[in-house]
Protein backbone atom coordinates (compact mmCIF):
# COMPACT_ATOMS: atom_id res chain seq x y z
CA UNK A 1 0.00 0.00 0.00
CA UNK A 2 2.72 2.41 1.04
CA UNK A 3 4.65 1.86 -2.15
CA UNK A 4 1.62 2.37 -4.36
CA UNK A 5 0.75 5.60 -2.63
CA UNK A 6 4.28 6.90 -3.02
CA UNK A 7 4.28 6.10 -6.72
CA UNK A 8 0.92 7.66 -7.31
CA UNK A 9 1.76 10.91 -5.58
CA UNK A 10 5.38 11.65 -6.29
CA UNK A 11 7.09 13.90 -3.81
CA UNK A 12 4.53 13.22 -1.08
CA UNK A 13 5.90 11.20 1.78
CA UNK A 14 3.41 8.71 3.07
CA UNK A 15 3.61 7.98 6.75
CA UNK A 16 2.28 4.86 8.43
CA UNK A 17 2.73 1.34 7.10
CA UNK A 18 6.02 1.41 5.26
CA UNK A 19 7.38 -1.15 2.88
CA UNK A 20 10.62 -1.16 4.85
CA UNK A 21 10.07 -1.87 8.52
CA UNK A 22 12.50 -0.50 11.11
CA UNK A 23 15.15 -3.14 11.96
CA UNK A 24 13.96 -3.88 15.48
CA UNK A 25 10.31 -4.14 14.45
CA UNK A 26 10.19 -7.85 13.49
CA UNK A 27 11.68 -8.71 16.81
CA UNK A 28 9.23 -6.53 18.70
CA UNK A 29 6.19 -7.82 16.81
CA UNK A 30 7.33 -11.37 17.50
CA UNK A 31 7.53 -10.56 21.18
CA UNK A 32 4.14 -8.85 21.07
CA UNK A 33 2.60 -11.95 19.49
CA UNK A 34 4.05 -14.19 22.19
CA UNK A 35 2.79 -11.81 24.86
CA UNK A 36 -0.63 -11.86 23.28
CA UNK A 37 -0.70 -15.66 23.20
CA UNK A 38 0.22 -15.73 26.88
CA UNK A 39 -2.71 -13.41 27.59
CA UNK A 40 -5.07 -15.54 25.49
CA UNK A 41 -3.96 -18.76 27.15
CA UNK A 42 -4.29 -17.20 30.59
CA UNK A 43 -7.83 -16.03 29.84
CA UNK A 44 -8.72 -19.43 28.38
CA UNK A 45 -7.59 -21.18 31.55
CA UNK A 46 -9.65 -18.76 33.61
CA UNK A 47 -12.77 -19.40 31.50
CA UNK A 48 -12.27 -23.16 31.66
CA UNK A 49 -11.24 -23.28 35.33
CA UNK A 50 -14.70 -23.90 36.84
CA UNK A 51 -15.26 -26.81 34.46
CA UNK A 52 -11.81 -28.25 35.14
CA UNK A 53 -12.10 -28.03 38.93
CA UNK A 54 -15.55 -29.56 39.01
CA UNK A 55 -14.64 -32.24 36.50
CA UNK A 56 -11.69 -33.24 38.72
CA UNK A 57 -14.05 -33.37 41.66
CA UNK A 58 -16.52 -35.49 39.73
CA UNK A 59 -13.84 -38.00 38.75
CA UNK A 60 -12.40 -38.22 42.24
CA UNK A 61 -13.66 -40.45 44.98
CA UNK A 62 -15.35 -37.92 47.34
CA UNK A 63 -13.50 -39.08 50.44
CA UNK A 64 -10.11 -38.88 48.70
CA UNK A 65 -10.80 -35.43 47.31
CA UNK A 66 -11.52 -33.81 50.64
CA UNK A 67 -8.44 -35.19 52.36
CA UNK A 68 -6.18 -32.43 53.67
CA UNK A 69 -3.53 -31.51 51.12
CA UNK A 70 -5.40 -32.99 48.14
CA UNK A 71 -4.96 -30.65 45.19
CA UNK A 72 -8.27 -29.53 43.64
CA UNK A 73 -6.57 -29.37 40.23
CA UNK A 74 -5.99 -33.09 40.01
CA UNK A 75 -8.24 -36.15 40.22
CA UNK A 76 -7.91 -38.47 43.19
CA UNK A 77 -8.68 -42.18 43.02
CA UNK A 78 -10.36 -41.81 39.65
CA UNK A 79 -13.75 -43.45 39.23
CA UNK A 80 -15.28 -43.30 35.74
CA UNK A 81 -18.51 -44.90 36.93
CA UNK A 82 -19.72 -41.56 38.22
CA UNK A 83 -21.41 -40.69 34.89
CA UNK A 84 -23.27 -44.00 34.90
CA UNK A 85 -24.38 -43.35 38.48
CA UNK A 86 -25.54 -39.84 37.67
CA UNK A 87 -27.54 -41.11 34.70
CA UNK A 88 -29.14 -43.87 36.78
CA UNK A 89 -29.75 -41.86 39.91
CA UNK A 90 -31.17 -38.83 38.10
CA UNK A 91 -32.93 -40.95 35.49
CA UNK A 92 -31.22 -38.62 33.05
CA UNK A 93 -31.97 -40.41 29.76
CA UNK A 94 -35.69 -40.18 30.41
CA UNK A 95 -35.32 -36.57 31.51
CA UNK A 96 -33.28 -35.80 28.39
CA UNK A 97 -35.98 -37.39 26.27
CA UNK A 98 -38.65 -35.21 27.91
CA UNK A 99 -36.48 -32.15 27.43
CA UNK A 100 -36.18 -32.96 23.74
CA UNK A 101 -39.94 -33.39 23.35
CA UNK A 102 -40.66 -30.10 25.13
CA UNK A 103 -37.91 -28.27 23.22
CA UNK A 104 -39.03 -29.54 19.83
CA UNK A 105 -42.64 -28.67 20.63
CA UNK A 106 -41.68 -25.14 21.68
CA UNK A 107 -39.26 -24.48 18.81
CA UNK A 108 -41.55 -26.04 16.22
CA UNK A 109 -44.53 -24.13 17.57
CA UNK A 110 -42.60 -20.87 17.62
CA UNK A 111 -41.47 -21.38 14.04
CA UNK A 112 -44.99 -21.96 12.75
CA UNK A 113 -46.63 -19.13 14.68
CA UNK A 114 -43.92 -16.59 14.02
CA UNK A 115 -43.45 -17.40 10.32
CA UNK A 116 -47.19 -16.94 9.79
CA UNK A 117 -47.41 -13.76 11.87
CA UNK A 118 -44.25 -12.36 10.31
CA UNK A 119 -45.71 -12.95 6.87
CA UNK A 120 -48.87 -11.07 7.76
CA UNK A 121 -46.88 -8.13 9.09
CA UNK A 122 -44.46 -8.09 6.17
CA UNK A 123 -46.73 -8.73 3.18
CA UNK A 124 -50.42 -8.33 3.96
CA UNK A 125 -52.49 -5.20 4.28
CA UNK A 126 -55.01 -5.20 7.08
CA UNK A 127 -56.55 -2.69 9.47
CA UNK A 128 -54.85 -1.84 12.81
CA UNK A 129 -51.58 -3.37 11.61
CA UNK A 130 -49.40 -1.02 13.63
CA UNK A 131 -51.44 -1.43 16.80
CA UNK A 132 -51.38 -5.22 16.55
CA UNK A 133 -47.66 -5.20 15.87
CA UNK A 134 -47.09 -3.00 18.92
CA UNK A 135 -49.16 -5.43 21.01
CA UNK A 136 -47.00 -8.30 19.79
CA UNK A 137 -43.87 -6.43 20.79
CA UNK A 138 -45.42 -5.57 24.16
CA UNK A 139 -45.29 -9.25 25.11
CA UNK A 140 -41.52 -8.79 25.40
CA UNK A 141 -42.32 -6.83 28.54
CA UNK A 142 -44.04 -9.84 30.11
CA UNK A 143 -41.48 -12.56 30.79
CA UNK A 144 -42.62 -15.75 32.48
CA UNK A 145 -41.04 -14.52 35.73
CA UNK A 146 -43.71 -11.82 35.88
CA UNK A 147 -46.72 -13.83 34.71
CA UNK A 148 -45.74 -16.99 36.61
CA UNK A 149 -48.47 -17.04 39.24
CA UNK A 150 -51.56 -16.48 37.07
CA UNK A 151 -50.16 -18.75 34.36
CA UNK A 152 -49.78 -21.51 36.92
CA UNK A 153 -53.42 -20.91 37.80
CA UNK A 154 -54.44 -21.22 34.13
CA UNK A 155 -52.43 -24.38 33.61
CA UNK A 156 -53.87 -25.88 36.78
CA UNK A 157 -57.38 -25.11 35.52
CA UNK A 158 -56.54 -26.81 32.22
CA UNK A 159 -55.21 -29.78 34.22
CA UNK A 160 -51.89 -29.42 32.40
CA UNK A 161 -49.57 -29.89 35.36
CA UNK A 162 -47.07 -32.69 34.68
CA UNK A 163 -47.73 -32.72 30.95
CA UNK A 164 -45.92 -31.85 27.74
CA UNK A 165 -48.59 -29.37 26.71
CA UNK A 166 -48.30 -27.67 30.08
CA UNK A 167 -44.58 -27.17 29.63
CA UNK A 168 -44.66 -26.20 25.95
CA UNK A 169 -47.87 -24.47 24.90
CA UNK A 170 -47.41 -21.19 26.84
CA UNK A 171 -44.18 -20.57 24.91
CA UNK A 172 -45.34 -21.45 21.41
CA UNK A 173 -45.79 -17.84 20.32
CA UNK A 174 -42.90 -15.41 20.30
CA UNK A 175 -42.53 -11.73 19.61
CA UNK A 176 -38.78 -12.05 19.08
CA UNK A 177 -39.22 -14.70 16.40
CA UNK A 178 -42.00 -12.75 14.72
CA UNK A 179 -39.81 -9.67 14.73
CA UNK A 180 -36.67 -11.34 13.38
CA UNK A 181 -38.44 -13.32 10.66
CA UNK A 182 -40.44 -10.26 9.63
CA UNK A 183 -37.17 -8.41 9.22
CA UNK A 184 -35.96 -11.28 7.08
CA UNK A 185 -39.09 -11.16 4.90
CA UNK A 186 -38.76 -7.40 4.48
CA UNK A 187 -35.22 -8.02 3.25
CA UNK A 188 -36.44 -10.05 0.27
CA UNK A 189 -36.26 -7.72 -2.77
CA UNK A 190 -39.73 -6.50 -3.71
CA UNK A 191 -39.07 -7.36 -7.36
CA UNK A 192 -38.97 -11.02 -6.36
CA UNK A 193 -42.49 -10.76 -4.97
CA UNK A 194 -43.59 -8.84 -8.07
CA UNK A 195 -42.15 -11.52 -10.34
CA UNK A 196 -44.00 -14.27 -8.48
CA UNK A 197 -47.25 -12.33 -8.67
CA UNK A 198 -46.95 -12.14 -12.44
CA UNK A 199 -46.23 -15.84 -12.53
CA UNK A 200 -49.38 -16.55 -10.60
CA UNK A 201 -48.11 -17.50 -7.16
CA UNK A 202 -50.59 -16.56 -4.43
CA UNK A 203 -49.65 -15.68 -0.87
CA UNK A 204 -49.63 -19.24 0.39
CA UNK A 205 -47.31 -20.64 -2.27
CA UNK A 206 -45.15 -17.51 -2.21
CA UNK A 207 -44.71 -17.97 1.54
CA UNK A 208 -43.52 -21.56 1.39
CA UNK A 209 -41.78 -21.63 -1.99
CA UNK A 210 -40.07 -18.25 -1.89
CA UNK A 211 -40.26 -16.20 1.31
CA UNK A 212 -39.22 -19.00 3.67
CA UNK A 213 -36.41 -20.47 1.53
CA UNK A 214 -35.04 -16.99 0.86
CA UNK A 215 -35.02 -16.17 4.58
CA UNK A 216 -33.35 -19.41 5.58
CA UNK A 217 -30.34 -17.88 7.35
CA UNK A 218 -32.57 -15.77 9.60
CA UNK A 219 -34.93 -18.64 10.29
CA UNK A 220 -32.01 -20.98 10.98
CA UNK A 221 -30.41 -18.71 13.55
CA UNK A 222 -33.75 -18.06 15.21
CA UNK A 223 -34.40 -21.81 15.33
CA UNK A 224 -31.09 -22.45 17.02
CA UNK A 225 -31.46 -19.79 19.70
CA UNK A 226 -35.08 -20.79 20.27
CA UNK A 227 -33.92 -24.37 20.77
CA UNK A 228 -31.20 -23.24 23.13
CA UNK A 229 -33.60 -21.16 25.23
CA UNK A 230 -36.25 -23.86 25.38
CA UNK A 231 -33.80 -26.61 26.32
CA UNK A 232 -32.28 -24.47 29.07
CA UNK A 233 -35.59 -23.40 30.63
CA UNK A 234 -35.79 -23.82 34.38
CA UNK A 235 -38.39 -21.73 36.19
CA UNK A 236 -41.52 -22.81 34.30
CA UNK A 237 -40.89 -26.56 34.17
CA UNK A 238 -39.82 -26.36 37.81
CA UNK A 239 -43.23 -24.85 38.61
CA UNK A 240 -45.48 -27.10 36.52
CA UNK A 241 -43.69 -30.36 37.29
CA UNK A 242 -44.87 -31.58 40.67
CA UNK A 243 -44.27 -35.25 39.89
CA UNK A 244 -40.53 -34.94 39.36
CA UNK A 245 -39.93 -38.69 39.07
CA UNK A 246 -42.03 -38.96 35.96
CA UNK A 247 -41.98 -35.47 34.46
CA UNK A 248 -38.65 -33.76 35.17
CA UNK A 249 -36.84 -32.22 32.25
CA UNK A 250 -33.09 -32.59 32.38
CA UNK A 251 -32.59 -29.16 33.93
CA UNK A 252 -35.01 -29.99 36.73
CA UNK A 253 -33.47 -33.41 37.18
CA UNK A 254 -30.20 -31.67 38.04
CA UNK A 255 -31.92 -30.16 41.04
CA UNK A 256 -32.60 -33.58 42.49
CA UNK A 257 -28.91 -34.43 42.13
CA UNK A 258 -27.74 -31.44 44.17
CA UNK A 259 -29.53 -32.25 47.39
CA UNK A 260 -26.45 -33.19 49.42
CA UNK A 261 -22.87 -31.92 49.20
CA UNK A 262 -21.55 -35.46 49.71
CA UNK A 263 -22.73 -36.59 46.29
CA UNK A 264 -21.55 -33.48 44.47
CA UNK A 265 -19.41 -35.60 42.15
CA UNK A 266 -22.63 -37.13 40.83
CA UNK A 267 -24.23 -33.69 40.47
CA UNK A 268 -21.32 -32.46 38.34
CA UNK A 269 -21.42 -35.57 36.19
CA UNK A 270 -25.14 -34.99 35.64
CA UNK A 271 -24.55 -31.35 34.74
CA UNK A 272 -21.96 -32.30 32.17
CA UNK A 273 -24.33 -34.85 30.64
CA UNK A 274 -27.04 -32.17 30.49
CA UNK A 275 -24.65 -29.84 28.64
CA UNK A 276 -23.71 -32.37 25.95
CA UNK A 277 -26.63 -31.69 23.56
CA UNK A 278 -25.90 -27.98 23.63
CA UNK A 279 -22.19 -28.53 23.11
CA UNK A 280 -23.07 -30.57 20.03
CA UNK A 281 -25.42 -27.82 18.89
CA UNK A 282 -22.70 -25.24 19.44
CA UNK A 283 -20.21 -27.19 17.36
CA UNK A 284 -22.67 -27.79 14.52
CA UNK A 285 -24.32 -24.39 14.39
CA UNK A 286 -21.86 -21.93 15.90
CA UNK A 287 -22.41 -19.43 13.08
CA UNK A 288 -26.19 -19.48 13.54
CA UNK A 289 -25.83 -19.15 17.30
CA UNK A 290 -23.58 -16.13 16.96
CA UNK A 291 -25.98 -14.56 14.45
CA UNK A 292 -28.97 -15.30 16.65
CA UNK A 293 -27.42 -13.98 19.84
CA UNK A 294 -26.18 -10.80 18.20
CA UNK A 295 -29.33 -10.19 16.12
CA UNK A 296 -30.45 -7.33 18.31
CA UNK A 297 -27.02 -5.97 19.06
CA UNK A 298 -25.41 -5.41 15.69
CA UNK A 299 -27.16 -4.35 12.54
CA UNK A 300 -26.93 -6.76 9.63
Amino acid sequence: MGIEAEELVPGVVVAGPRSEAPPEAPNRSWLAAVGWYVLLIGLSLLVLLPVWLTLMRALSTPAAAVKPGASPFLPHEVQWGVFRRAIDQGNLWAALGRSMVVTILITGGQLVTSVLAAYAFAYLRFPFKRVIFALFMATLLLPIEVTLLPNLHTVRDLDWFNSYQGMAVPFMATALGTFLIRQGFLGVPSEIRDATRLEGYGHWSYLWKFAVPLTRPVIASFTVISFLAAYNQYLWPRAVVTDSNNWSTIQIALRDLTTTPETSNIAVAGALVAAIPIVVLLILFSRQIVQGLTAGAVKG
Binding site: P189, E191, I192, A195, R197, L198, E199, G200, F210, L214
Partner: peptide
Protein backbone atom coordinates in the same frame (compact mmCIF):
# COMPACT_ATOMS: atom_id res chain seq x y z
CA UNK B 1 -55.05 -10.27 -11.56
CA UNK B 2 -51.44 -9.99 -12.82
CA UNK B 3 -51.31 -13.72 -13.53
CA UNK B 4 -54.25 -13.51 -15.91
CA UNK B 5 -52.94 -10.63 -18.03
CA UNK B 6 -50.76 -12.75 -20.28
CA UNK B 7 -47.78 -10.48 -19.79
CA UNK B 8 -44.19 -11.23 -18.74
CA UNK B 9 -41.81 -8.82 -17.13
CA UNK B 10 -38.04 -8.44 -17.06
CA UNK B 11 -37.01 -6.59 -13.93
CA UNK B 12 -34.15 -4.18 -13.41
CA UNK B 13 -32.57 -6.47 -10.81
CA UNK B 14 -33.72 -9.48 -12.89
CA UNK B 15 -35.53 -10.80 -9.78
CA UNK B 16 -34.12 -14.27 -10.33
CA UNK B 17 -34.93 -16.71 -7.56
CA UNK B 18 -31.58 -17.29 -5.87
CA UNK B 19 -32.60 -20.62 -4.33
Amino acid sequence: DPRDRDVAMVFQSYALYPH
